[in-house]
Amino acid sequence: MVGKLPYHLKKHFVSLSHMGVIPDDVDHDKLYEDVNEMRQKYYHVPLNQVSVGIAVQDLFQVAYNHRIHIPNEMTLLGKSILTMESVATFLDPNISVVDVAEPFGKKLFWDRLNPFVNRLSFSIVLLALSIVILGLIVGGAISGTVSPIIGKVPIVEISFFIALLMILWLLFAIFRPGRF
């Protein structure tokens, strides 16, 4: 039964065991089986059809059955979710906690993604600058002149200056306050 659990979940179990959350004498095969059963129960179900309260209860039941220590903060969070869902269901039986929480989750996702996107953009800009400089160096070396001049206009230097201005503008757009 252990082989059915994905590798990344097995790594979580190892981490939890090292933290002392999972007792040493727990039946790991049965625990893996129960977690896999719970994962299969919710895996392909659309979020609007999942009762968050029941999912939290299932999670706590598996933890209780295997004597897994759940930190007090997590227990309080689970109880708060159950209370919130029952009050919301009492006030509006058609409400879905997932539908209410979805906009906040999207905003949180994009807020956490923006620094990564900015760093990625910055890396691409630096790569582009390196390629432009390399092209100027190689082009100058192949032509045998330091600065090809067409009609007394230094094309390479003007192109480099324009590229530099574009890169500085892009860096300003990335690093302006509140963006990085």
Results as ranks from 00 to 15, higher is better:
1 M>T: 09
2 V>D: 11
3 G>I: 04
6 P>W: 13
8 H>S: 10
9 L>D: 15
9 L>E: 15
10 K>W: 13
11 K>H: 11
11 K>G: 01
12 H>M: 12
14 V>Y: 13
16 L>W: 12
17 S>C: 10
19 M>G: 05
19 M>C: 12
20 G>M: 06
20 G>H: 04
22 I>R: 04
22 I>W: 07
24 D>Y: 06
25 D>C: 00
26 V>H: 06
26 V>G: 06
28 H>L: 13
29 D>C: 12
32 Y>K: 07
33 E>Y: 15
34 D>R: 06
35 V>C: 12
35 V>N: 07
36 N>R: 06
38 M>C: 08
42 Y>E: 08
43 Y>S: 13
46 P>V: 08
46 P>T: 06
46 P>E: 03
47 L>H: 07
49 Q>N: 13
51 S>H: 02
52 V>F: 08
54 I>T: 15
55 A>T: 03
56 V>P: 00
56 V>T: 09
58 D>Q: 09
62 V>M: 10
68 I>P: 09
68 I>G: 00
71 P>L: 11
73 E>H: 11
73 E>Y: 04
74 M>C: 10
76 L>P: 01
78 G>Q: 03
79 K>T: 12
79 K>Y: 09
80 S>W: 02
85 E>F: 06
86 S>V: 03
88 A>G: 05
92 D>H: 03
93 P>C: 01
95 I>C: 00
95 I>H: 00
99 D>C: 06
99 D>F: 08
101 A>M: 06
101 A>E: 04
104 F>D: 02
105 G>A: 04
105 G>C: 03
107 K>A: 14
107 K>C: 08
108 L>M: 12
108 L>Y: 10
109 F>C: 04
112 R>C: 15
112 R>Q: 15
113 L>H: 14
115 P>A: 11
118 N>P: 05
122 F>Q: 12
124 I>D: 01
125 V>Y: 00
125 V>L: 09
132 V>R: 02
142 I>S: 07
144 G>D: 01
146 V>Q: 12
151 G>F: 12
151 G>H: 13
152 K>G: 09
155 I>N: 10
156 V>N: 02
156 V>K: 05
157 E>D: 13
158 I>L: 08
160 F>M: 12
160 F>W: 11
160 F>I: 08
162 I>T: 08
162 I>P: 00
164 L>I: 00
166 M>A: 12
166 M>I: 04
169 W>F: 11
169 W>M: 10
170 L>N: 03
171 L>W: 11
172 F>A: 14
172 F>V: 12
173 A>V: 09
174 I>C: 00
174 I>Q: 01
175 F>W: 14
175 F>K: 15
176 R>T: 00
177 P>L: 05
